[in-house]
């Protein structure tokens, strides 16, 4: 485990600090038809966990590591957004 210090910690390393119970099914889905029409692609930079990525023109969302803030759904109303099922997702200790 990196101790942080003066080095910039990657978002992956920071997500490693959060306790999660990961569900098999994603709680958030993107609609590729809408994504193809989108020129802003704000999901790629507003997610504090950097879970939206673009691969070969398709937007991918990785629900593992979702901090459940809802920023993406405010930034993009086309996202099919839900909280994880009860008991799943992040378990903050110092929230």
């Amino acid at each position: 485990m990196s101790d942080g210090g003066d080095e910039k910690l990657s978002v992956e390393a920071r997500l490693g600090l959060v306790a999660f119970t990961i569900d098999s099914e994603p709680h958030i889905r993107v609609n590729q038809d809408e994504c193809r029409k989108c020129s802003l692609k704000q999901c790629l930079f507003v997610c504090p966990a950097k879970l939206y990525t673009e691969e070969e023109g398709e937007i991918k969302f990785n629900h593992e590591g979702c901090l459940e803030c809802g920023t993406c759904r405010i930034a993009c109303p086309k996202i099919d957004w839900n909280y994880p099922r009860g008991g799943f997702g992040a378990h903050y200790q110092y929230g």
Partner: peptide, 12 residues
């Protein structure tokens, strides 16, 4: 200084 992050979180 010398402190390490132990949790990362986000909220609206």
């Amino acid at each position: 200084k010398d402190g390490s992050p132990i949790e990362y979180s986000a909220h609206l």
